[in-house]
Amino acid sequence: MRDAVIVDAVRTPIGKRNGTLASVHAADLSAKVLNALVERTGIDPGTVDDVIWGCVTQIGDQSSNVGRSAVLSAGWPEHVPAVTVNRACGSSQQAVDQAAHAVMSGQYDLVVAGGVETMSRVPLGAHRTTGQPYGPGVLARYEGVEFNQGIGAELIAERWKFSRTRLDEFASASHEKAAAAIDAGVFDDHLVPVDADGTKLTTDEGLRRGTSPERLAGLKPSFKEDGVIHAGNSSQISDGAAALLVTTPERARDLGLTPIARYHTGAVSGADPVTMLLGPIPATEKALHRAGLTIDDIGVYEVNEAFAPVPLAWLAETGADPDRLNPYGGAIAVGHPLGGSGAILMTRMLARMRQGGIRYGLQTMCEGGGTANATIVELLP
């Protein structure tokens, strides 16, 4: 089995809902990061074996294999193929996993993996306007329950007895950490500025400085009248894209490139589709077991902040060190462009690993339908 390594990772700034990136088509936004990889690495795009691209709501602007449209928009040779994958919020993390698996198996030598979501143009849930995504068999199995992530987050908060104050404290800390990272220039080396209608977006747009539990206390619950989940302790609706270059150590050397990290282990898992958001817990356990590592061996954890109870429940069940969790904030502070988030989190985690000389990083995402990805990467000298 060959090693797979990540040579470079880039992302756009995350645009807020109906913000600067709302005017940019998903294929064109994707092309920005594809071409940034070419400019940064000097690779010939014609030598890329495949582009594996995550996207969740694959209708409208994001239909008809948006990954392929991205390759064409980028001006890459027509013979370069692409495929669009959907594992809900973990779609671009799944894309990275599949790229690594293809390289490790020897079927591919040079792959681009990543993803995109322009939620301003293709809203979450838009697919429901054209049919019932679950079908009679699924609805009968779960007694006609409505599969709602917000209600799932409420159920998690109730199960672990997370108070509204605790959730709002976590959300406020996400903004604080994101602001500190932006001010320190942590993201500058992997951000690709985007021009849109004469405005250049150079940093994540959704950050709300000065967010505090006291301010969040004034927001109304979003899913239950007496609930604890609201817009301020949930991920933001956003636009964004990210891309990573995956190859072998030998091919990287031939190209004159220095790998950042080795793909160590990947795992996927399923959980209750009603609660829906607990998949990262068994996925993490599975990945650690497969890797022969413990949670304490991991120096940084990126657990997607879909809703504040998700990473908090993950912490409670894994016994992980909270100081290693989401050191630069997360989706509550800067947004969650669904199909791009997995690759975005990986770029952020790699930045933290390089900055701190951290050997192992673990990334995990909760996903609609109750699935989850967990990926472990190892920093290389």
Rank of each mutant, 00 (worst) to 15 (best):
T130K: 10
N148Y: 00
A252V: 10
G75I: 05
H127D: 14
Y134C: 08
Y142L: 06
A82R: 07
V96Y: 10
A126Q: 15
D8L: 02
I14F: 11
V145A: 13
R159L: 09
P81Q: 01
M353Q: 09
I281G: 00
L139A: 14
L345N: 04
D168A: 03
N65W: 12
G206Y: 07
S212E: 14
D8S: 14
T265A: 13
L167A: 08
G42K: 09
A333E: 00
L139K: 12
A26T: 09
S235T: 09
E117W: 00
S73M: 12
P259S: 06
V274N: 09
H190T: 08
L312V: 00
A74W: 14
A88V: 09
V377T: 11
P327T: 05
N326C: 01
A231H: 11
T130D: 14
S212V: 11
E214N: 03
T199V: 15
L110N: 09
G185N: 05
H25Q: 13
P259R: 04
D50H: 12
S63C: 15
N373T: 15
D28G: 06
V10W: 10
R208F: 06
E225M: 05
Y134V: 15
V138S: 13
A374T: 08
G232C: 12
R290F: 00
G329Y: 13
P280K: 03
P282M: 02
G106K: 07
